[in-house]
């Protein structure tokens, strides 16, 4: 079944492009006035953009941007979010009440609205982009971890550990965290897909990666003005984003089935 492997292959390609991206970022910025808006052909696989830059090379360079942002944001948010959720769920009482209120307040901002505002106010750049998306991203993991801990802490093995006098740290890290990993991994996989779209979206709005650095989102933004003359400028990055996101979503679905987890459907 070759079809089953396509998503994994695409994700691996994305990761590899991100790894070799730094070597192509210069080449992707080379302007060749002879080749402006040249359509795809045997000489140039995906054609050239409005400044005569190779779209294929810019896609590779852009893979690095989206990979760094997705991994950075998901890694940071998952770590901070699940720690907060773990603490709230296990400690309970006033701390839980307080943290749940904070989580509720962050959940009151729909979608990437808060990230757009934060990125807009803090100014463009990859570091600000990661901060803005992490400020929004941690909440989902916190809510998930808290919910899981609430049900897990009544399990026999945890009660036994408490009765045996294990320290709180041991219980949290040895007895609760391992059981939390499976749902967190699934959530993080869907989170990566969401962050690829979010990074490209913010860059599309001009709030993320700044030119001449390549981002799939800003490539779509640049191409939108030339759609009749050069549809390849919009098609290439769009299809790339869609394939990567689709692969990550499929991977998340499979992991969920494989690990047999029921997650609350998060509304993006």
């Amino acid at each position: 079944m070759i079809r089953r492997w396509i998503p994994y292959l695409l994700i691996a390609l994305w990761g590899m492009a991100a790894l070799i991206g730094p070597w192509f970022s210069e080449a992707g910025n080379v302007i060749d006035l002879e080749k402006i808006l040249q359509p795809p052909g045997p000489a140039a696989l995906l054609g050239y953009d409005d400044l005569g830059r190779s779209i294929l090379l810019r896609l590779v360079a852009g893979a690095q941007t989206s990979f760094i942002v997705a991994v950075g944001v998901v890694g940071f948010s998952a770590l901070v979010g699940s720690l907060i959720g773990l603490l709230a769920g296990y400690h309970g009482g006033w701390l839980d009440l307080l943290l749940v209120r904070v989580i509720d307040i962050f959940l009151a901002f729909p979608g990437i609205l808060l990230a757009i505002a934060l990125a807009g106010v803090m100014g463009p750049g990859i570091d600000n982009l990661i901060i803005a998306l992490s400020v929004v991203g941690w909440v989902g993991y916190a809510r998930l971890a808290r919910g899981q801990v609430l049900s897990l802490k009544r399990r026999d093995h945890v009660m036994a550990a408490v009765a045996l006098g294990s320290s709180r740290l041991t219980i949290l890290t040895k007895h609760l965290l391992p059981l939390l990993m499976a749902p967190l991994i699934v959530e993080a996989t869907f989170g990566m897909a969401g962050m690829v779209i979010a990074e490209a979206g913010l860059s599309f709005l001009g709030l993320g990666i700044q030119s001449p650095q390549a981002s799939w989102g800003s490539m779509i933004r640049d191409g939108a003005g030339y759609m009749l003359m050069a549809p390849h400028m919009v098609l290439a990055p769009g299809v790339t984003i869609m394939l990567v996101v689709l692969s990550l979503n499929l991977l998340g679905d499979r992991l969920r089935d494989y690990l047999d987890i029921r997650l609350p459907k998060s509304a993006h």
Binding site: A193, F204, V234, G238, M242, L246, L250, D253
Partner: peptide
Amino acid sequence: SMLGMSIPNFWLGPMLIL
């Protein structure tokens, strides 16, 4: 539906316009 979830709206929009 999986495809619909994976298409970013800043790309779907320009494609529909085209």
